[in-house]
């Protein structure tokens, strides 16, 4: 089993918003970052992966199993962290453990207390008194304490301070060392991904633009800078989107080879960051 998560032709329609023909694969043993602008459909997709939402059409398989017949077996193996606090606000961490722990066959109390200590979390204080970062740590401690094979996180780094964000990324990296774990997490802070992601899934306006390894992304996309005189109707075809300026143009290409043959040394080709790719891809829609 190579794909831990597999979405085939999945679509979900809401009023004024839809996820269309989603074909998403998340490979076992890797970190896949799920990027897209606010409202692109990241949370909707994650909810479909968690079976909180049922797709109108298409197939969702987790660990090769479907939710209709294996719901419990699938969820036993998933650890989840959501954007907001989903735990009962008035309860302390000890009580939350007493509610969540017994739900899992493989719940590990010792491991839970180890994370509680590592994250310096108070056991007897109500969750509602926790800061955003502490709530996130609490969710993470719960998510990691039942030896989940797949960890799904919806915007885990949103609202966290830069120091804790880095700590979190380090921790995720540590978790990946054992090799069997898979992490799938959505974010719009793309710099998080440069550090830890192996694969990038990019969603835009409810459609999956690509799922590629971070190296493929670097090889496929590039930022091209040059003088305006180089641009005409034909040469522009080599670009996803062009940003013209009086001092020269900046453009994103998904065909570095073509750019090389057309422009040669007359342009500067730079590596495109994920943020730049997202930004130019967004331009593409209005450009067409």
């Amino acid at each position: 089993m190579e794909n831990v998560v597999e979405l085939k032709g999945v679509a979900k329609n809401f009023k004024g918003f839809s996820v269309n023909n989603m074909n998403l694969q998340v490979k076992q043993g890797f970190v896949t970052g799920f990027i897209g602008a606010n409202g692109a459909g990241k949370s909707t997709t994650i909810k479909m992966i968690m079976n909180l939402l049922k797709p109108d059409v298409g197939e969702v398989k987790i660990f090769g199993l479907d939710y209709a017949t294996h719901e419990k077996a699938i969820k036993e193996r998933i650890g989840f962290v959501y954007d907001g606090n989903v735990f009962f606000e008035g309860l302390n961490l000890k009580d939350i453990k007493r509610i969540v722990g017994p739900a899992y066959k493989k719940w590990d109390d010792a491991l839970f207390y180890q994370y509680v200590e590592q994250f310096k979390l108070p056991l007897n204080k109500a969750i509602k008194t926790f800061s955003k970062g502490m709530q996130m740590k609490a969710s993470l401690a719960v998510a990691l304490s039942h030896h989940a094979e797949l960890i799904i996180m919806d915007e885990p780094t949103a609202g966290l301070d830069p120091i804790f964000r880095r700590e979190l990324l380090d921790l995720l990296q540590e978790l990946m060392l054992d090799g069997s774990r898979t992490i799938f997490f959505s974010t719009h802070i793309t710099t998080d991904l440069d550090r830890i992601a192996d694969y990038i899934a990019f969603i835009q306006n409810g459609e999956l633009v690509f799922t590629q390894s971070i190296h493929e992304v670097a090889e496929t996309y590039a930022l091209v800078k040059g003088g305006m005189d180089l641009l005409d109707r034909d040469t522009e075809k080599a670009f996803v989107h062009v940003h013209p300026a009086p001092t020269g143009f900046e453009a994103l290409t998904d065909n570095i080879k073509a750019v090389n043959t057309i422009f040669g040394d007359s342009v500067v080709i730079e590596r495109a960051s994920l943020e730049e790719i997202m930004y130019y891809m967004k331009g593409r829609k209005s450009y067409v």
Partner: peptide, 8 residues
Amino acid sequence: ILLNSLPY
């Protein structure tokens, strides 16, 4: 969301 994300 919590209950439905747990194995129930």
